[in-house]
Every structure is written in C-alpha cells, then in structure tokens.
Write a protein that binds this DNA or RNA. Structure first.
Lengths: 114, 114
DNA sequence: TTAATATATGAACAAATGCTCAAATGAAGA
DNA sequence: TCTTCATTTGAGCATTTGTTCATATATTAA
C-alpha cells in the first residue's frame, strides 16, 4: 500500500474519523443485518411477514418461489433471529422477531414513499 | 411447486399481504441500498464519510485496505449515487450524497447503541 | 517533455450466495 | 402400521462478489 507522500494523508482528519468510527464488531453486526435484507427475495419475505404471520406454503405463493427456496431463506433469517417460527401440526408459521429490523424496514419504507 | 392441498393456503391472508406488498421495483430498490451497506468494508467507508469528506488515500488508511480495493468500492457507491466525488489536483475527495442513506445509517447506529 | 503521484480500471480468481433437485423429517389420518 | 403432506436439509451448480495485480489515466512539477 502506498503511503501517500506528503499532502495526501491529512493525519488530523484521519485520526478524528478513526476515533469516531464504531468498533469493528459493531460494523460487522450492522452489515450482517443489512445483508439479510439485501436480497430482493429475502426482503420480500420479511415485508410479507411485516404484514402478518404466515406459513411457509403461503410465503412461497406470495413470493412466487419454491417452498424449498423459501425454507432456505427462512433458515438464514432464523439464524439471525430476525424471524421465529411456531409449529401447528404439519404447518409451520413464521413471524418477525427483531424489533430493530421491523423499525428499520418501516423507516426505509417511509423514505421510499418520498 | 406444491400447491398445498386444503388448509395450508389461507387465501384471505395471502391476498391481504400481497395487496399491501410494495411493488417489485420498490423492493428491488430497497434491497439495492441494503446491499450497498451489507459488506463490512463498504459500510466502513460509508461510516468514515459520515464523519467527514475524505480522499481515497485517507480512506485506504482508515479502512486498512488497498487504494485499488477502496476505489472499486467507491465506484460501486458512486454508481448508486450514495457518494459523489470532487477532484482537487491529483487528489479526489469523496462525500456522502444520499440523505436517505445518511439517515438510515444514523438510525441503525442509534439502535446498535441499544 | 519527462517523471512522479493519486486514482481508476480491467482481468483473473477464490469465496460466497441463492437456487434446484432429491431425499429426509415430523405430524396427522386411514 | 402405512400414507400423505408441509417443511427441512444437503449436495451440486451457476452466478455474483470482493479482492489482487498489472496497467492506464489524470494532474502536477521539474
């Protein structure tokens, strides 16, 4: 890496920014949430669950995707504790389980509508 | 795809959710922003620029990454109009240029700090 | 002009991602 | 018990992603 000769690095500015930057773990944690919402199919699942609880089968109809594909995505969201599930006989219902994510989505939706 | 036999699809619920779901383009647009913030290195760049304007060289020091790597990430952010740049001689300064993203990040940061 | 420097860019590549398909679970009914 | 059905899971795969490296561009100074 090229440590720019003289004028490029403004050391004061760099130090100020570095000092105020969140810890690396915090950054990774934030990125993790954003990544969960970064795939349109997965985001659509979350948006559907924002409306109400749904079973895997219903989600697959809503999102127009295989139940298998949906199930894989739900597992990912489950691992991140963004959703939780409850079983009722053969059917498994999923719900959003992360208030931060819920309000983040609402916030984004508000902005999308100008 | 298996159109669940009888009881699985709750047609009323499905219809209600589908009706309230944002348009596909909106979903894709939201996901695009989340994706931009979903990589820790890229998020760190954005967080650094949240503090103040920086040149590529400084960002590379702050983020501890090659100038080339930073430049590639900045191009992506530039294409999404999340950042803009201005040249001053040999040096190019980058600034955040999307108010929605700025407030989204602030919002997330507030939540991270419980 | 030539050299030096900051940034940008394209190709290449390893790693991660999201889907499909086939097979495994788990629950309810015959 | 055996069958059916909703869901889960693992393997395989094509595609995307983030980085590196080498090279190009743009600006300034000599």
């Amino acid at each position: 890496m090229n440590v720019c000769a003289d004028k490029c690095i403004n050391e004061a500015n760099v130090n100020k920014t570095v000092k105020n930057l969140p810890d690396q773990e915090v950054i990774v944690g934030m990125a993790e949430i954003f990544k969960a919402l970064s795939d349109p199919s997965r985001l659509k699942i979350v948006l559907a669950l924002l409306e109400q609880e749904h079973c895997v089968c219903d989600i697959s109809v809503i999102c127009n995707q295989t139940e298998s594909a949906i199930s894989h995505q739900l597992r990912l969201l489950r691992n991140l504790k963004i959703v939780r599930n409850r079983r009722e006989g053969k059917i498994v219902y999923y719900t959003l389980d992360d208030d931060h994510v819920i309000s983040l989505i609402h916030y984004s939706l508000d902005h999308v509508k100008h």
